[in-house]
Design a protein around this nucleic acid. Structure first.
Lengths: 158, 158
DNA sequence: CCTTGACCTCAAGTTGACTTGAACTGGCAG
DNA sequence: CTGCCAGTTCAAGTCAACTTGAGGTCAAGG
């Protein structure tokens, strides 16, 4: 199996063809030639895509990830960068934990209104002061959510 | 202190005036009148803004937050929703922890190239398979975000 | 040979949460 | 009375990471 076409790369990696084209345009991956119009990729592109997925999951932007590859295309990953990201992740985790505990408490709290629950108000103050901080949740990509059927919006506990 | 103007609301809440206008347009807050052109807010808007900040920090979208207020403007927060969000948060935290541990290891790993580090490759597979999952980090807005001073969360796991 | 269908390119659209710019207004200090 | 300056409106821009649409091409199958 020397060189796979874009459809196969998409199938094997789980990344959409449009995304592969987009990544190529961004310089994150490179196609190796064409068969007709079709891009051909070296199978090694799959490793590369895994690396990109990893980077994304770790919270790196595509631009940051692009910088992790030497001009020759080999990964050039700075250990200090990893350590820094790990630390950043740790801070995030701490905040999310605080948030989580607070939410759990608020959900279980017997006070008639949340505004009367001391824990809730403490959370409120923390959020207002920015101590809990920023976060943005990403909507799930349309693709592999066939499982839940017709439900377009999230099915949260009613 | 009866009614504060937008500048004061911005100052007291740490939320920009443009954001306050945006929130008003979205129906998240309401101004109570005008002095000249200037919006006047009830000081209670500050609680409301804290609530909004809290919701955002917990990962709710503005639209979701908007739905947390009854038509009369009083918060109507569904406890099951909070519990669901807490659970979601917990899953996220678990993933981030895995990521964090992997990054730490990779950062410290003595293998000459990351591709030769078993831990790193395990991470890679996890990311490629989607087991680690999606996340999007937000760039901090220009403003300060000073005091992350008093921490109230223990970092569990790690 | 001709249709078909997957791929191609390039531009534009999407989403969420805001920010920015241009043109305007009006209370208040001087 | 007159500027100033901080407010106002509305439209459009920004950012990231893609996706979608329109119109085109080409290898292969019938």
């Amino acid at each position: 199996m020397r060189d796979i076409d874009i459809a196969e790369a998409a199938r094997l990696s789980g990344v959409r063809a449009s995304t592969l084209r987009f990544y190529e345009e961004k310089g994150l991956i490179a196609s190796h030639g064409r068969r007709g119009l079709r891009r051909l990729f070296d199978p090694a592109v799959l490793d590369r895509l895994a690396l990109i997925a990893l980077g994304r999951a770790a919270g790196f932007s595509l631009d940051e990830i692009a910088r992790m590859f030497a001009p020759d295309g080999r990964p050039r990953i700075d250990r200090r960068m990893l350590a820094a990201k790990a630390e950043e992740l740790e801070r995030t985790i701490r905040k999310l934990n605080a948030m989580h505990d607070g939410l759990r408490h608020a959900a279980a709290c017997p006070a008639p209104s949340h505004m009367e629950c001391p824990t809730f108000r403490r959370l409120l103050r923390a959020a207002a002061s920015g101590a809990i901080g920023e976060r943005k949740t990403r909507r799930p990509p349309r693709k592999s959510f066939a499982a839940t059927g017709r439900e377009q919006g999230r099915a949260r506990g009613s």
